[in-house]
Amino acid sequence: MESSVSVPADLAGSLIRKSKQGLVLWAEGFREACCLHRVFIYCFRSRQLAVRTGQCFLLNGFIFLGSIFLLKSVIVPALQWILPDQCPQITSEDSRSCGGILEFYNFLRLGLVQLFYVFWFFPLYILSFILSNIWYNDIAKHGFFAIEEYGASGTKLTDQKESQTSQKTVSKAKSTDFEGVMIGIAEQIYSVLLLTFFFLEVYVIGFIPYIGKALNFLLLSWMYAYYCFEYKWNLSGLSLDKRLDFFETNWAFFAGFGSPCALAIFLFSPLVSYGVMAILFPLFVLTATGSEADKIVSLPRTKWRGAGLGRVPIFYVADYVSTKILTLLPTQQGRATPENKAL
């Protein structure tokens, strides 16, 4: 009797400990994402970083979001005043003609707004998407080198140490031998496929009744967290299999880190949420670049005597589909290996 009672008690105690550990890691990830003061420090260290960050704010904040505000606050009310949707006090004899005029006004007003979208918002959206993705790479690179240049203590390194650090970073990020280059290209192709199918998975899960929105928010949090840290991992030369292993093992931390990013998707309309995310994303990239995630996630394990939460196969479906597609390509070995699945 005592043994049968102790087993559920031990199981309940284990679940409570893991829940506490998961909440602590989630809170640590959320806190790391909100350490936006790092952005000002890194921009102060690097003029190129400050310029690129300012360009993102100017294009996506002032121009893109400003255009949406101008449309909703000025243009639409002006069209409503010029082309009203209600007739003044009229007699019953004029009601039929007034209805036809109102239909024409509604059609004309809607058409003018659609023209504004077609000839301004959609081209601006495409331009913003292209330039922002180019600038995100530059922001991550300048932020990464700004951190490497000053070291962990925050004091500027000497010229010799700075040169050695830059050369070490570049040698990690870019391999000169042919095999290393091919593995790097293969990993990039696989990474693009993996994230593409994961994005489709997130989109489809959102349509599940009752729990779809909650799962969608969780997966979006992981997706944006991975996007933010991927820049740092690319620059530091971390292999793809190690990235996925570290990410899926510390899923609670990354769920917390990506939560502020996912909130913008749920709080605003699609067009506004894109503009808000285009402003916030480079900031979270910089906070991820300056985050020492490996040290942060090891603290709860020490407190709970090394007990981990276990690995969650977040990218299992996307990995399975991506691997099946890549196996259709001609390869030397005829199969995808765990280290370089795209070869």
Results as ranks from 00 to 15, higher is better:
L283M: 15
E201W: 13
Q48Y: 12
N340P: 00
R38A: 03
I130C: 06
S273D: 04
W233M: 03
L108E: 10
C98A: 15
S95P: 00
L11P: 01
T155A: 04
W304T: 13
A318P: 03
V51F: 05
W222I: 00
K172L: 07
K156V: 10
F62Q: 03
T165Q: 12
L193V: 00
L25I: 08
N250P: 08
I126D: 06
F199M: 09
A264T: 15
F268V: 01
D159C: 07
G13F: 05
L299W: 13
I63H: 03
S14L: 15
F197D: 02
T91Y: 04
A78H: 01
W120N: 11
L25S: 13
E149I: 00
G180W: 04
R47G: 14
I325Y: 05
G256Y: 05
Y136V: 12
F198K: 10
Q332S: 07
L70E: 14
H142Y: 15
T249G: 04
S132D: 14
C35P: 00
T176Y: 14
E162K: 12
P260L: 05
A50E: 02
L25C: 11
K232V: 06
D177Y: 13
I314Y: 06
S153P: 02
Y125L: 14
E2S: 12
Y136W: 15
L124W: 02
D245G: 00
L36Q: 01
F257R: 03
